[in-house]
Amino acid sequence: MKTILIVDDSRTVRESLKFFLTEGGYQVIEGCDGQDALKVIEGKTCDLVITDVNMPNMDGLTLIGELRQKKEFKFTPILVLTTESQQNIMDKGKELGATGWIVKPFDNDKVMAVIKKVIGE
């Protein structure tokens, strides 16, 4: 079973994402901001990271940079949660090593389509 790390400070987003992903047959681990995420995945690996950008303590872009420094996460796909209007964030995310993005608001189909694109079935 593939494992996905969700990082978002909004409980609603985390819970709805978790719902879609567990329905889709994935195992989910959660972090409520960048710092928390780094703590949660300490010594672990996962198949995909989905992270929000704007979070307290450590934002999503910094998290991407930190993850890419770790040898376990060098090639792990990372998706950024953004809103339509944040083109500059998408660009910055790409620069730091993000794989792609999920545009909010999202639904099940959208999330699954993007996940299929970056980690396959």
């Binding site: 890419r68 090593g97 694109k117």
Partner: peptide, 14 residues
């Protein structure tokens, strides 16, 4: 490309 976590084969599959 690999350093951004992209697997080009998945794109070809698509």
């Amino acid at each position: 490309l690999f350093l951004s976590g992209t697997n080009p084969l998945l794109l070809l599959n698509e």
